[in-house]
Design a protein around this nucleic acid. Sequence first.
DNA 1: CTGTTAGCGCCTTCAA
DNA 2: TTGAAGGCGCTAACAG
Lengths: 362, 362
Amino acid sequence: MSAVTMTMVAKQAGVSVSTVSHVINGTRPVAGATKQRVLATMDELGFTHKPVARSLAAGSTTTIGLSMSWVSSMYGQELVAGIEEECLRQGMQLLLADTRDDEDREERAVANLLAHHVGGMLVAPTARWHSATLRLLQEHSVPYVVIDRLQDMRVDQVGVENESGSSSVVEHLLQIGHRRVAAITGREGLATTRERLAGYRLAHRRRGLRVDERLVVSGGSTEQGGRRAMAQLLASGPAPTGVFISNDSMSIGALRALQEAGISVPGQMAVVCFDDFPWGDVFHPRLTTIAQPSFAIGARAVQLLVRRLSDPQAPAQTLRLAGEVTHRESCGCNGQGPDLGEFVEVHTPNVGVRHRGTAVRA
Amino acid sequence: MSAVTMTMVAKQAGVSVSTVSHVINGTRPVAGATKQRVLATMDELGFTHKPVARSLAAGSTTTIGLSMSWVSSMYGQELVAGIEEECLRQGMQLLLADTRDDEDREERAVANLLAHHVGGMLVAPTARWHSATLRLLQEHSVPYVVIDRLQDMRVDQVGVENESGSSSVVEHLLQIGHRRVAAITGREGLATTRERLAGYRLAHRRRGLRVDERLVVSGGSTEQGGRRAMAQLLASGPAPTGVFISNDSMSIGALRALQEAGISVPGQMAVVCFDDFPWGDVFHPRLTTIAQPSFAIGARAVQLLVRRLSDPQAPAQTLRLAGEVTHRESCGCNGQGPDLGEFVEVHTPNVGVRHRGTAVRA
DNA sequence: CTGTTAGCGCCTTCAA
DNA sequence: TTGAAGGCGCTAACAG
């Protein structure tokens, strides 16, 4: 039997329901003796608070929703961990919904969450999310913060510094002598895609080199796309000697293509990529990557949401956390390269840091 | 504004709330004309159903809860995907809570889910879950199904066939000539640990070999544990020539230890393990594994729950899905081994199958 | 076929 | 310092 209600507690303790309610919520002073009695009976009866009833009556919740595509990427695990951890600390509950990076699913997911009376939302938007989903969010006038794929809007959002991160690894390749460095870019329309590509270009500019546009290929952010993109790079024209891959899924696809073509890494092709793999230093090729501070991003997102919840008028804030270059062997510099740290300012925010394998610096 | 209620729809359409309710739920016949009118006004006003109010009033929900530790394992992603997919098909919502394989967190997680009025629960229990959590579940008399770590109880549960799976890969090592095959086992108290170890023993028995107990080491199911276990195996006594590792996290740890010791796989050490990696055929060493049908397991779990929801008196059911041996190179048989398929009956249940990379059969 | 009337468990004025 | 009473949005008898 779970049906221990406030009414039952009230009757048993010989007080009114409102007193019980106030004891629970600390929403008005209650005499010490009464309070103790209520607390005791609550404990005795095994009373549990029912958030749904509360939210119905009060119109608010301590539950927040998270809408993201976490099946498609390894990056999501740490993110969710960070979010959960911070939720715990803030005394909030988390409701999860998966979008699979599909706009329709996303709309349904958000609608669901909203229907479940979440008090706020964390959204890692899909590529073309604005249309319906954004409207939903705004119609319900629910506070939300955008994660990862930042928008050109005045909203609370937190993500990684894409441009500086990618520019530093690309510049590393250029610096150790590569002159034909390709880029496999993500899905069109994503801020991350745009910014990481910008980093790639910036690196060339810094070195006074011109980008050969034939070496810039879209991989659509998926594993299959990455595979195709790499295959295409290998097939057409003068092959690159190095490649920058814009996310983890595409990296796997690209590696698959390289393997199928019998090309060794880094021997015949240097590889650097965005997004780290937690097991990146165990398997070969050991990838040189930019690790996102996923855990911290998640935690910060919750903090941003909590802030907005308590102060709806606060100005919108955009947080950019620095990625961390994890230097391994796929770049082929054999430790002769520069310390990449000089390009990237690695600052890990003070929100609970997680170990992510052994980062080998050059 | 999100506050479009049934009452408003009723007034606008000139009917009573109960009619609106019945139109929505199809819970009693409504005249065609009336129904159309209600539907139209609902659409016009942008009405959204509020599940929390419904569950309060009806005492039931279409929301089910999932309590598991999915951050720690890659296996979890497919599982959740399978669960979600099936939930979608069954028209149910999913609430997620992470336990991090910690008993206290698990208790809180389950309590939370219960508090949110879930109509049923999916639980992938931690090692010592019975004490508090199970009681919670039963006190609330909520239907639940156990996933993965099956219990010795009469409850609905679904998991992989641990024993036959591990015995087949271990027997493979024995068959190609290994005589000192070690086992790195999981956390004590887990059914999976027990069963996978039993498979390891069974393989030896089948081949008429005795297990050297010094080669059986616990890795506690964690990456660190796997690393320590492997280090221990390498340090003490006569080293094994092959090893069976009981889950994915420990495999990563063990590989790390092997790498630190400068031991090549499969050259100096043959490796087989439970749990596959989605990217297992891209990186080296390419692990020979037993892939769990995670997606199917998730889907079946939902089906089991739905069945119990509709028929509380149905007899408890235990489902065992076959794992699939994914034969790659870490076993070192160089394709000379037998077709492992002859040991394992691979039957993929009819619940939506997912691609998981290219499985190379010997 | 449809409306009326109680609540579900809780919060929140308004009184006392 | 405390109670009583109304209502959040919806469902489910009970009446027509």
